[in-house]
Design a protein around this nucleic acid. Structure first.
Lengths: 130, 130
DNA sequence: TTTATACTGAAATTAATAATCATTATTATT
DNA sequence: AATAATAATGATTATTAATTTCAGTATAAA
């Protein structure tokens, strides 16, 4: 038996929470949500499973600035917009630019696994009320 | 008088250290370097000035994963490659794709200030010794 | 239906960063 | 130059997010 091989209700609930939101929540938000379903779940278990699910490639961990990590239930690469005022992270429907990976491979000889692209600015609602 | 208005030797040394390296160092590395020149400088002062210089737009703070922040003495936008094995952060000489900002502005109505693009993989030396 | 061990909750621990505060140094004003 | 106002400092403490520990529990293989 190896790490991450057993299905537990905690693991299942955490993954479901992430797959049913597009808010790219923090570990603590996931914890609060999980408690609604499993009142005795601990924050440590949430962190443990978030790391596990990330390592298994089922979710993505996002980092913007030096704040806490955010988690994305969509494991497929896509880009994000981060509002600098309300701090919301929004999914962008842009075609992923794969040719850049190739350009770097050729130009520098690096092996490129993936890339991340994020945009920073003000979302629609935050532009209005300023 | 307002915050960040006075020139101190600590501030000058920290900025010079960052401008004379391309290693995108952590706060602690900057601290160790600064102590060679100013033995009594404190880590708190290093953090304070890094935040200040970032807010003044003279340096950039970089975040890859949930580890510690890295700092870039080049305030102009450019892209990075992060080696997942040796953790080195390398500058890339790619033309900045400004048209993407415009595309998002049009498509979503967001005001875009800037964007970040980073590539993850294995650098040349880490590809060899695996 | 026993056995091996992955996973858990609770608590303690770590690591990075920020805040506090009395003192010092810088700049503006006399 | 001397003085005054206050930004910045070093030293220390506090905060925060995240990880680790550990005895007990639950999962799944035998």
């Amino acid at each position: 038996m190896k790490l991450g091989s057993r299905t537990t209700k905690q693991k299942r609930v955490i993954l479901e929470i992430l797959q049913n939101t597009d808010t790219h929540p923090t570990a603590d938000w996931v914890y609060q949500e999980a408690r609604q379903i499993l009142p005795d779940i601990s924050l440590g278990t949430v962190y443990r499973n978030l790391n596990l699910l990330r390592d298994l490639g089922k979710i993505q961990e996002l980092n913007y600035g030096s704040g806490q990590s955010r988690y994305d239930g969509n494991p497929v690469n896509h880009y994000h917009f981060v509002c600098e005022k309300c701090k919301k992270v929004l999914d962008l429907d842009l075609s992923v630019v794969v040719d850049l990976d190739e350009e770097i491979r050729e130009k520098y000889g690096f092996q490129v696994f993936n890339h991340r692209l994020e945009f920073y600015g003000l979302c629609k609602t935050c532009q209005e009320d300023d």
